[in-house]
Design a protein around this nucleic acid. Structure first.
Length: 263
DNA sequence: GACAATGTTCGCAG
DNA sequence: GCTGCGAACATTGT
């Protein structure tokens, strides 16, 4: 469940249960074919060290300490992290298992094998290697506007572009557009500065709200699009009905009645 | 069996 | 060289 708020929830799990414990071993889990995972040498580098910090940038998660090295994780489409005790047994689809001294374990799970794990020197190096823009939650209004401006494509594609802004994915891009009243396929040049400012306000509010629930969708307001991502459902903001279309290769749910400009 | 899935990356066309 | 698409990646669930 891996957009910014979902990864932030995972970061907190790591922070709460896996810091300041000496790493005894790092092992591969089950069925690790076709997944990019650290080799024996890199896994060995983590042994004897402790994670003293868990960081997140966009959808990327990092655990490590000032002196490094760091474990970098990307969840792909369905990855997650679990902190547990050895007696509980390893979770399903565990691909990499960090065993701390004592019983505590941290597993990187990835059922659909689109994620990866690697050992890196610093989070900054990895952020630069992927050409990530600033984290969405760190953006002030003017920076958001400048990073989202420029280009000719659809506004939704720009929101999803991790090199512009890191962290927004398909679900929360749709939610932001729905709550701002802008159709996903409106082209950037058609947007007024005021509309981009509206997107900023909505995106920050939405991402913070989802983070506050630890990405528990059932706790989010009933009126949100997240609860009605299905064609034909009633719009919560007007008399329209939800429709879907592909924008930027991704299925996009929106209300053609109150989201104007191209839907 | 067909299709879609919350993401990233690659190749190609413009 | 840059930008914008579409397809591909591997697997699960409906």
């Amino acid at each position: 469940m891996p957009e910014l708020p979902e990864v932030e929830a995972l970061r907190r799990r790591v922070e709460e249960g896996a810091l300041n414990r000496t790493i005894e071993r790092v092992d591969l889990g089950n069925d690790t074919s076709h997944i990019d995972l650290p080799g024996p040498d890199d896994r060995g580098r983590l042994e004897g060290t402790q994670f003293t910090e868990a960081r997140r940038h966009g959808k990327y998660l990092f655990a490590g300490s000032k002196s490094g090295p760091w474990l970098a994780l990307h969840m792909g489409m369905a990855g997650s992290v679990r902190v547990y005790d050895a007696a509980d047994g390893n979770p399903d689809y565990a691909r990499l298992i960090v065993a701390f001294e004592g019983e505590r374990r941290l597993a990187f799970r990835d059922p659909r094998k689109f994620g990866w794990a690697k050992v890196v020197e610093t989070p900054e190096d990895e952020i630069a290697a992927h050409d990530l823009g600033p984290d969405a939650l760190d953006l002030d209004r003017d920076t958001f506007i400048s990073r989202l401006s420029g280009g000719r494509g659809a506004v939704k594609s720009a929101l999803l572009d991790q090199s512009r802004i890191a962290g927004i994915g398909n679900l929360w891009a749709d939610e932001t557009l729905y709550q701002t009243g802008i159709a996903p396929d409106v082209k950037l040049p058609e947007l007024a500065d005021g509309q981009i400012a509206d997107l900023h306000r909505a995106a920050i509010r939405i991402l913070r709200t989802v983070c506050d629930t630890d990405a528990t969708y059932s706790e989010l307001p009933d009126a949100w699009l997240i609860h009605r991502r299905e064609t034909g459902r009633a719009c919560s903001r007007c008399d329209g009905k939800i429709e879907s279309k592909k924008v930027g290769g991704r299925t996009s749910y929106y209300c053609p009645d109150h989201q104007g400009g191209g839907g």
